[in-house]
């Protein structure tokens, strides 16, 4: 196993204001080339955890982080944030394609932002490969110069995943990627996520426990900012070791 592909959190705490913690002392080692779902009630710190992994929390100056997040043994806070975010892609809850770029340019937007210059043939290859990867190619191949907002919400979300994949990140963070799309699109995105784990380590925040149990290999349960349990999915969802996990899962299923 490549050492670079290991993501480790060491006593990570995040506070929005002094004394009030969104996350308390989280230590966890994310399994590579697997899907780990982060579950928990609203306000349990799921998104805060996800966003801190690619340093998005820095956009809000009042958020403080303590502890270390190690990417391949290196503390991400000592790395260049641009490099961290290139290696750890983030897919948002709301599909958010860039409205001023067409579909083709949206897929390549990461390269444009990172000032990586590609030849026309390379661009064509990347766009086709990424759109095929998210099963969007056949739907948009005849209208690559269209405005992405003309697509359905589900298609937009897959476009956003393609845009993130184009940069070939090692990690993929997903913040409730299917909460705004319908059942059919959810299935397609789930299939896609399942396929992507061959090449990527995926962390997904979800409210949908059925979804978490369907696709994830590992699950991580947070309650009020504390890590309650982290184990294989079939243990967490079938026979959790901690009473609190069991209570949350039973409540959600009922």
């Amino acid at each position: 196993m490549n050492k670079n592909h290991i993501l480790e959190l060491k006593s990570v705490s995040i506070s929005y204001s002094p004394g009030s913690y969104a996350l308390k002392n989280i230590s966890v080692s994310i399994k590579p080339n697997a899907i780990t779902s982060i579950i928990g009630a609203s306000g349990s710190g799921k998104s805060a955890l996800l966003r801190s992994i690619n340093r998005m929390h820095e956009l809000y100056p009042n958020i403080r982080m303590q502890g270390e997040i190690l990417l391949g043994g290196k503390n991400i806070m000592e790395m260049n944030p641009v490099e961290v975010r290139r290696r750890i892609g983030l897919v948002f809850q709301q599909p958010n394609p860039f409205p001023t770029m067409n579909i083709y340019q949206n897929v390549l937007s990461g390269y444009k932002l990172n000032k990586i210059y590609l030849s026309k043939s390379e661009k064509d290859r990347i766009v086709e490969e990424c759109l095929r990867n998210v099963s969007l190619w056949d739907e948009v191949k005849n209208g690559l110069n269209k405005n992405p907002l003309s697509l359905t919400v589900g298609q937009q979300q897959r476009l956003c995943i393609a845009r993130t994949l184009a940069l070939q990140p090692e990690f993929l963070l997903m913040d409730e990627p299917t909460s705004t799309v319908d059942m059919f699109c959810t299935n397609r995105i789930e299939e896609l996520i399942y396929r992507l784990k061959n090449n990527h380590t995926i962390l997904i925040v979800t409210h949908n426990l059925a979804q978490a149990s369907r696709i994830s290999d590992y699950a991580l349960y947070l309650e009020k900012g504390e890590l309650i349990e982290y184990d294989k999915s079939n243990i967490i969802f079938v026979a959790p070791n901690d009473k609190r996990t069991e209570k949350y899962i039973t409540e959600q299923v009922e």
Binding site: L59, R85, R86, F92, F98, G110, K112, L113, N114, T164
Partner: peptide
Amino acid sequence: YLKESGLALGGSYTGVILKIIMP
């Protein structure tokens, strides 16, 4: 979301302002 998603793709602050926000 424009700025956040630009930064999440590894864009620098200047890059996001010039290539995403300004257009």
